[in-house]
Design a protein around this nucleic acid. Structure first.
Length: 578
RNA sequence: GCGCCUCUAGCUCAACGGCAGAGCAACGGACUCUUAAUCCGCAGGUUCCGGGUUCGAAUCCCGGGGGGCGCACCA
């Protein structure tokens, strides 16, 4: 995998809020203003008379005035109540007590910054040549979470994990100054720590920082998942993704691929002189796709608004405005099913290129997906449920109607009587609606019969005009459009077409949709008169594409669930976090 | 929405009608070259919630809740 970290971080990456002054509600920082003991007491600290020490503190979200104030008021804090059936409380109380003991000894347990000099991965690269029991004389400062600890009496090994990877700390207790020794004593697995010392190797040859000073940067007062088994329960992994990320390297790998994918596609588009734009998410009318929208309300205007289901309409209006190449990495919202492959909010990349057509769009799609695969994984072959998929270009381009004929054993065409096609659908076990026209029926045959059998990658071209209200019709066949879909493993990954830019024809298409809606078709595209007006100013011939980012990442990361590629997937709200 | 599965210590998992257990983490101790460190000791439980059956329920039944997987809708 080539999702390297470290390079961009090379030198003086600093953690901490740095120059941003912290303003705590309720008092100036550092003044020592005493809040009452209610300020920030530990749950389970046995508040007198409360009887239910595990109740979450009502004021938890309020930051303390200052650390020392809390320590002094909380002198009685660490006693872990009666210990009956309160083991999490006890574990947390122990960790808080260690933190407080440090504070009492004059060590700030929440220092404002730490100046790191090197990342673990950089050290590994730089000192890869060292043999066992070597010394370098090079002093470094490293920081991260302590993820393992192996004590040997006066000698302690610890594993420090930062954004780039892990490096070992080798601590000879005798070499530490007093504050550092106190930190070593007080720190637990999961704590953020910083260490300074000499780069060296152990007798076994493990690259280490021979620690001279050790500081606590932030205490993990809540115990972390098992260092070996990690976190497995899906519910917890999705609800507390941060925990999943810090406990499960595989999760990190998947999201590295996701963000490298998006970055690579952005870069490829910028290299081709596309401009990244932002269009409204709150819209009076959600268009550009067929889907049920979420509805919300704007108080000031006293109007209901919809969350966008696709950015398409606005992006084309920008092309009218003279942005000849635009794209948006768009979060779309569809008030529909939740499944292994569907999250109500998902990410799509849409790009529009003036003076191009459907061929232009297919080429662009191919380049973008390739750029993503190369940058995020360095591979072009991926395992899917249907088998291994090889993304090496050029991808086959096939006519939808030809493929359908092969699959069905007889030719079909949207000019045929709808009744015949409906019968064909029913023969194949497809439920049909009497209101559907021939084009929709052909599309259903494609969607239900053909699509699942295509491993791909394949660019399927020529979709019925009836299911493509925004696409240009094909010259010589007004029942079809210049539209393609990219199919991989029986699923649609991308969709694009020569944009319909004839205002009267677009208006006519919308009228057809209105009629469909009046017939009770819930899938009709809403008519967008502002868009027609925009086309009347002139949309140049334009290629448009949309790529489903979540699905693409699923392919590249070889995972089966969309929830595994969305950091915080939609879940039922948690009843009472804690 | 329907069907199937699942929920036990902070984490990972046993126990499947008969005393709720282990590993990791924690806690006390030993240890100057480990890397899932090791060793000795100790502690930790509303078995998701509510009801029922039973001499006895984590276990069986009913209801509820969270989650997962299929199906349906969809990208």
């Amino acid at each position: 995998m080539q999702v390297g970290h470290g390079g961009p971080f090379a030198a003086a990456l600093r953690i901490s809020g740095g120059s941003t002054p912290r303003t705590y509600r309720g008092g100036a920082p550092g003044t020592g203003t005493l809040r009452t003991s209610a300020a920030w007491e530990a749950p389970g600290s046995g508040r007198a008379g409360s009887g239910r020490p595990s109740a979450p503190p009502a004021s938890q979200s309020r930051a303390p005035t200052c650390w020392r104030a809390v320590v002094t008021t909380g002198a009685e804090q660490p006693e872990p109540d009666d210990r009956s059936g309160r083991s999490l409380d006890a574990l947390m109380a122990e960790r808080r007590a260690k933190r407080d003991a440090l504070a009492a000894a004059g060590v700030d347990p929440y220092p404002a910054r730490f100046d790191r000099t090197d990342l673990a991965a950089d050290l590994r690269r730089r000192f890869a040549h060292l043999g066992p029991d070597d010394r370098t004389g090079v002093e470094v400062a490293v920081a991260g979470r302590m993820t393992a600890r192996r004590g040997h009496g006066k000698l302690v090994f610890a594993t420090l994990t930062d954004v780039s990877g892990a490096v070992q700390l080798l601590v000879q207790v005798a070499d530490l100054d007093e504050p550092s020794a106190a930190v070593l004593e007080a720190c637990d697995l999961g704590d953020w720590i910083g260490a300074t010392g000499e780069v060296m190797t152990s007798r076994r040859g493990e690259l280490s920082v021979g620690v001279r000073t050790l500081v606590l940067l932030a205490k993990a007062v809540r115990p972390l998942p098992d260092k070996w088994h990690g976190l497995s329960e899906a519910d917890t992994r999705y609800r507390q993704r941060e925990l999943d990320l810090l406990a499960n390297p595989e999760t990190r790998r998947v999201f590295d691929i996701r963000f490298a994918t998006i970055a690579a596609m952005r870069q490829a588009l910028v290299d081709e002189h596309f401009v990244e734009v932002e269009t409204p998410i709150l819209q009076a009318q959600a268009g550009g796709a067929i889907a049920r929208p979420f509805v919300t309300h704007a108080n000031t205007l006293d109007v209901d608004l919809r969350l966008r289901i696709a950015p398409e309409i606005y992006l084309k209006r920008l092309v009218v405005g003279g942005y000849e190449r635009v794209f948006e990495v768009a979060r779309n919202f569809r008030n529909e099913g939740l499944s292994t492959r569907h999250n109500p909010e998902f990410t799509a990349l849409e790009a529009y290129q003036a003076f191009g057509d459907v061929e232009t769009g297919m080429g662009l799609t191919e380049r973008l997906v390739l750029a993503a695969a190369d940058a995020a994984t360095g591979r072009r072959s991926f395992a899917t449920r249907g088998g291994d998929v090889d993304l090496t270009p050029p991808w086959p381009r096939r006519e939808l109607l030809e493929l359908l004929e092969e699959a069905l054993g007889r030719p079909v065409h949207p000019s045929q009587p709808a009744g015949d096609l409906a019968t064909l659908c029913r023969d194949r076990g497809i439920e049909v609606d009497d209101a559907w026209g021939a084009g929709k029926l052909v599309f259903e045959l494609y969607d239900k019969v053909l699509l699942p059998t295509l491993l791909g990658p394949v660019l399927v071209c020529g979709f019925p005009v009836e299911v493509s209200p925004l696409a240009r019709h094909r010259a010589g066949d007004p029942t079809l459009t210049e539209r393609f879909e990219l199919v991989v493993d029986g699923r649609e990954y991308a969709n694009g077409y020569s944009e319909l830019n004839i205002p009267e024809e677009q208006a006519e298409r919308f009228r057809f949709e209105i009629e469909a809606a009046q017939r009770g078709d819930p899938e009709a595209h809403p008519a967008d008169l502002a868009f027609v007006r925009s086309l009347e100013y002139g949309l140049p011939p334009t290629a448009g594409i949309g790529i489903g980012i979540d699905r693409l990442v699923m392919l590249l990361a070889e995972v089966d669930a969309i929830r595994d590629v969305i950091l915080f997937p939609m879940l039922r709200p948690e009843a009472s976090p804690g």
